[in-house]
Computed example of a mutant assay.
Amino acid sequence: MDKLFLQKQVLERLAEDLLQVEEAARQAHEAATHEENVAENKYDTLGLEAAYLATGQARRAEAIRQTMANWRRFHPHPYNASKGIELGALVCLVDSDEKQQLLFLGPNGGSMKLVSGAEPIQVISSETPLGRAMLGKFEGDEVSIQIAQIRQQFEVLRVH
Rank of each mutant, 00 (worst) to 15 (best):
V91D: 02
Q149E: 13
A24D: 13
E139P: 05
N70R: 14
E98N: 13
E127I: 04
F154G: 08
G136R: 06
Q146M: 11
F5I: 10
S111C: 04
T45R: 15
D95R: 10
F104W: 09
A81R: 13
A58P: 09
S126E: 08
N108W: 00
L90K: 00
L6M: 15
N41S: 10
T55N: 14
N41H: 09
G110D: 00
V115I: 13
V123T: 09
E40T: 08
I147L: 15
A148F: 06
L87I: 10
N108P: 03
V143N: 09
A63F: 00
R72E: 11
L135A: 03
S96E: 15
F138D: 02
S116M: 12
A61D: 02
T128L: 00
L93C: 07
F104Y: 10
R132L: 00
G106I: 01
E36W: 09
E142C: 12
A31E: 11
R158E: 14
Q100R: 15
F74H: 08
Y52H: 14
K83D: 10
A28F: 03
L130E: 00
R13I: 07
Q101S: 13
E155M: 14
D141G: 08
I147V: 15
A39Q: 08
V123F: 01
L14G: 08
A63Q: 14
R72H: 05
G106H: 02
E62G: 07
M112E: 06
P76D: 05
G56N: 13
A81H: 12
V156C: 09
G84D: 05
M68P: 09
A81L: 06
A63C: 01
R60P: 05
V21N: 07
Q152L: 15
I145F: 03
I121E: 04
R26S: 10
E40M: 09
Q153G: 08
H29L: 11
T128R: 00
E49K: 14
G117P: 12
R158A: 11
L114F: 02
L87D: 07
P120Y: 07
A25N: 05
D44T: 09
A25G: 11
E155D: 06
E142Y: 13
E139A: 12
Q153P: 06
G131N: 12
G88T: 05
H77E: 11
S96F: 05
N108E: 03
S126P: 04
E155W: 10
A118Y: 09
